[in-house]
Amino acid sequence: MRIPRIYHPKPLSAPDDIALSDDAANHVGRVLRMQPGNKVALFDGSNQIFNAEITHIDKKQVRVQITDQRLEDRESPLNLHLGQVISRGEKMEFTIQKSIELGVNTITPLISERCGVKLDQERFEKKVQQWQKIAIAACEQCGRNRVPEIRPVIRLEEWCAEPESGLKLNLHPRASLSINTLSMPVSDIRLLIGPEGGLSQEEIDMTARYDFTDILLGPRVLRTETAALTAIAALQIRFGDLG
């Protein structure tokens, strides 16, 4: 049986005896139907893996005994911050899940002029909580032991104006530069991906004022979720750990 990877929201240490979080206990006990004596692998965001054995299961909790711990670094040398204008429905969830598999460190959901999602502050906060759970699940699946942060939703210009010492990139279908023409080395990148209708000309001009460099992926126009993942993969190949 494959040993499941489970995220724990509090710091871990061997040889702790702990109760799993409610979400993890439900997954282990009800979904996977695991039993005392079965093994699990825990991670707490500290870039370590903690091997553990289930000691007790009932309807209220699952307890495990941590047997050992070790550093297991699967992070890219490229620190990549994705600013993604919020897309409709499952597209945003798909982008978050797959970008984390590809090694993104931080994701900021953005509101732009042509953003197709209109929610109030409370519903956006609930969305961020939901997206953070998707990020955790993606880490459980892909083997990352640090959990990327899904930041609160902010407006596009607020995000562009934030201080950033690294390279700032904006995808643009009429740009003259490509990822392969960017100078090396690069260790920090802030990547902007616009909405399904694209950024307005005023927004493109605004990104230039904040020193964003326009780049082109290729001759075809990509959907927003395709553009994000294609750009991330290309950046990881050139500056990170893919390929």
Rank of each mutant, 00 (worst) to 15 (best):
205 D>F: 07
100 I>C: 11
241 D>W: 08
172 H>I: 00
13 S>K: 15
147 V>M: 05
238 R>F: 02
93 E>R: 09
145 N>A: 13
138 A>Q: 08
60 K>E: 14
222 L>G: 05
11 P>N: 09
199 L>P: 06
241 D>G: 07
9 P>F: 04
17 D>L: 15
12 L>N: 04
217 L>P: 00
159 W>V: 01
40 V>F: 11
213 T>E: 09
228 A>C: 03
195 P>M: 13
156 L>C: 10
82 L>P: 07
40 V>Y: 12
31 V>P: 12
139 C>S: 12
136 I>F: 00
89 G>T: 01
120 D>R: 13
97 Q>V: 06
211 D>I: 04
58 D>T: 05
129 Q>R: 07
150 I>L: 12
228 A>D: 03
193 I>S: 00
210 Y>C: 01
238 R>V: 08
224 T>M: 14
202 E>T: 11
192 L>K: 00
137 A>S: 14
117 V>L: 10
60 K>N: 14
2 R>K: 15
95 T>S: 11
117 V>E: 10
120 D>K: 14
195 P>V: 14
115 C>E: 10
164 E>D: 15
27 H>N: 09
36 P>V: 06
4 P>E: 03
75 E>C: 09
24 A>R: 07
79 N>D: 13
32 L>N: 04
232 I>V: 15
84 Q>H: 08
74 R>K: 15
214 D>Y: 05
181 T>P: 02
71 L>W: 00
87 S>V: 04
83 G>C: 12
184 M>Q: 15
119 L>N: 06
112 S>F: 10
33 R>Y: 11
146 R>V: 08
188 D>A: 13
100 I>K: 09
28 V>D: 02
129 Q>H: 08
209 R>Y: 00
23 D>C: 00
128 V>R: 10
229 L>A: 02
155 R>A: 08
21 S>P: 13
12 L>E: 13
32 L>P: 05
56 H>L: 11
10 K>V: 01
234 A>K: 14
33 R>N: 10
234 A>R: 13
170 N>T: 14
181 T>I: 06
90 E>F: 01
202 E>V: 02
183 S>L: 14
76 S>R: 04
88 R>Y: 05
30 R>D: 07
229 L>H: 00
115 C>Q: 04
117 V>M: 08
80 L>W: 07
221 V>K: 02
209 R>A: 05
180 N>M: 12
219 P>V: 11
30 R>W: 06
48 Q>A: 14
176 S>E: 12
34 M>G: 01
94 F>A: 06
64 V>K: 09
143 G>E: 13
129 Q>M: 10
217 L>V: 05
44 D>N: 07
45 G>Y: 03
21 S>V: 09
4 P>I: 12
219 P>E: 14
110 L>C: 09
56 H>N: 10
55 T>P: 05
128 V>G: 00
129 Q>G: 04
30 R>T: 10
10 K>A: 01
197 G>H: 15
155 R>Q: 15
23 D>E: 10
183 S>V: 03
196 E>G: 05
193 I>R: 07
14 A>R: 07
200 S>H: 08
184 M>L: 15
229 L>F: 02
208 A>Q: 11
126 K>E: 04
169 L>W: 01
185 P>R: 05
112 S>T: 00
187 S>V: 10
218 G>V: 10
50 F>I: 09
161 A>F: 03
158 E>S: 11
178 S>G: 15
144 R>L: 15
82 L>K: 09
186 V>G: 03
